[in-house]
């Protein structure tokens, strides 16, 4: 849900009237860096799903599959974040606006489009964990 909020509200706000809107976004993030949030909760999420995978490992092969799939999907999100989003964050928030208006416009549109993919990966990871828990409770009762 955080990711969907980022697309619908944050990224649309940054890109709504470039160059003025990106300057407003830079001013807004001047004192608190939003990466602080993701740098804490991203690793916690990855660690929790890894622990779930390890602790449910012996229960059944299908549980391994579903928790493993969640782990893989979240790992893909981390990879996408470093390989795709961070380079565009650099363009959006550090490049000179006057000299790179077109690149900033392009980066903003690409960021929004790809963030729908990132949200879909996260949703698939959550659903896969739901399925894992469902199988676990069916096995137990």
């Amino acid at each position: 849900m955080v990711s969907i909020y980022n697309t619908l509200i944050d990224a649309n706000s940054w890109g709504s009237d470039i160059p003025a809107s990106i300057q407003t976004a830079r001013d807004y993030y001047k004192y608190v860096d939003p990466r602080n949030f993701f740098a804490i909760f991203g690793p916690i999420n990855q660690l929790l799903i890894l622990l779930a995978l390890i602790f449910f490992w012996k229960d059944s092969v299908s549980l391994r599959f579903y928790f493993g799939l969640s782990f893989l999907l979240y790992a893909i999100i981390v990879f996408l974040t470093f390989a795709y989003f961070i380079p565009r964050d650099q363009i959006l928030f550090t490049w000179s606006i006057q000299d790179h208006t077109e690149q900033i416009r392009a980066a903003s549109a690409q960021w929004i489009a790809m963030n729908w993919i990132r949200s879909a990966l996260g949703l698939a990871g959550v659903l896969s964990s739901f399925k894992g828990l469902d199988i676990y409770y069916k096995l137990k009762h």
């Binding site: 990871g125 959550v126 964990s129 676990y136």
Partner: peptide, 30 residues
């Protein structure tokens, strides 16, 4: 008897721990 009770307690704690990890991952990811 006591050994069975302790065994059940350990199983319950282990079960809670497992679902805490799984549900925790769902809550944080969602």
């Amino acid at each position: 008897m006591e050994a069975i009770a302790i065994n059940q307690l350990i199983r319950s704690v282990f079960h809670l721990l497992k679902i805490t990890f799984a549900i925790g991952a769902i809550v944080v990811a969602a």
